[in-house]
Design a protein around this nucleic acid. Structure first.
Lengths: 134, 134, 134, 134
DNA sequence: GTGGTCTAGACCACG
DNA sequence: GTGGTCTAGACCACT
């Protein structure tokens, strides 16, 4: 099973599902046209209520990540042209600022933070390549 | 007033206060020994319920950022040796991953993401220097 | 093929078929006595389940738009005297109201809406004339 | 009570709520800053489950029609600049075409349809003025 | 079998 | 008291 849910996390389950699927797409584990587990299958696999999965799927569809074909199933969509790019970049900037403040608290300055982000990104890339060859 | 609250944001107000004060410390606007507004003063300035400010102060104290001296007021503490460093780094790593996924959705690859983070950090540094000379 | 199905649309496929045939009748592309493709032919052409086409034909027959002659095929009927006129006008009125609300959201007032509907109808008329001469 | 729900209608209840509130805004019955009933109040008034109302409110917020203020309630927003204008106009055009086909079935031609729409819009305007003075 | 909707009842974070 | 989330179980329309 490629998706792990932490039901004790503060993050809502449906957001964890959304994040997990988006991450799989970003990593290339899921590609355009791939069929997702049905709402009921996935809910059984994750031992989560089917409504929770349905909510995640609906939001993913609104986001243009997946496509629901009536009575047939749910599929990964072609990467769509993103909307609200500026807004989303702004939100990301705020997140980075928050990380910077947290990093300062841990004794990192700006340069150290940049380096640390670099290593994290590299680790992610390595992960991604491994997953693509799997 | 150096603290701005957005009551419509999805982020809880008490977290905004915590973040704001931590950011001021990180930027050097607030330094060890500086006295903070009292709970009631700050709640009045922000037009926010005083329970909300109290909750923020409590959490800041637990984090070792501030120090409450009975009858005298609340003060910024010396930068303490941070606790749970590994845990917090892990949490930050997760945040960076989420940002990466979001960035991928916006068409950035790993390299572009690193560059973008670099510019954001630089902008923050500039901000910080301006604030320090103010 | 004069009928286009969008399997991702929120509108059920059988309704798209019904609508498409009714539109062809309204435009004069299909006339009384014309023979329709059989259920199996049409389902093959549209790459759609034959149950779906059958459901559409059944409803069209109930509506008096088509006529099924056993062993011969399915034909367009003479325009029948419509039933439930008041009910259907009411339903249409509700639809117009919904459009009005949506239009208001887009910044149109009543007059602008009327004008806009006018242009849409005119475009449709032009379409119709072109189809009739084809 | 200004909102009527038809639980036997094919239209989902949460969509009826959304439509009803949007219509009230369009008519001027609800104005920017007005407080809506709380999720639980409205669910009691409509004898509908609170989740259903919550779903409607969430979608209205995503649409920029209302604004949720944590712990305080839900309010009508200033009219926002609409997004996806072209897409929405296209959807509206399709609706008008469907109405045209239906109208043809009832014996109306293009001109008669335009006139009929005119009278419907006028009736709505009258309604609106009455509601504004109430 | 597919997703979509709804009810009932519960718990939680926030202010 | 406010909205948000989740579970459990049911029904429905569509393919």
């Amino acid at each position: 099973m490629w998706l792990k849910i932490d039901s004790r996390s503060a993050e809502p389950i449906y957001l964890q599902i959304i994040r997990g699927i988006k991450a799989s797409v970003a990593k290339g584990v899921l590609k355009a046209g791939d069929k997702l587990s049905s709402v009921r299958e996935l809910s059984a696999e994750l031992t989560v209520n089917h409504n929770t999965v349905a909510k995640a799927y609906q939001e993913l569809e609104r986001d243009g990540v997946i496509e629901v074909v009536r009575g047939r199933g749910t599929f990964i969509r072609e990467a769509a042209v993103p909307t609200d790019v500026d807004e989303r970049l702004d939100a990301m900037k705020t997140s980075v600022w928050n990380l910077l403040v947290e990093a300062h608290h841990l004794g990192m300055d700006g340069l150290a933070f940049k380096r640390w982000v670099g290593t994290v990104v590299d680790a992610w890339q390595t992960d991604k390549e491994r997953d693509e060859h799997a």
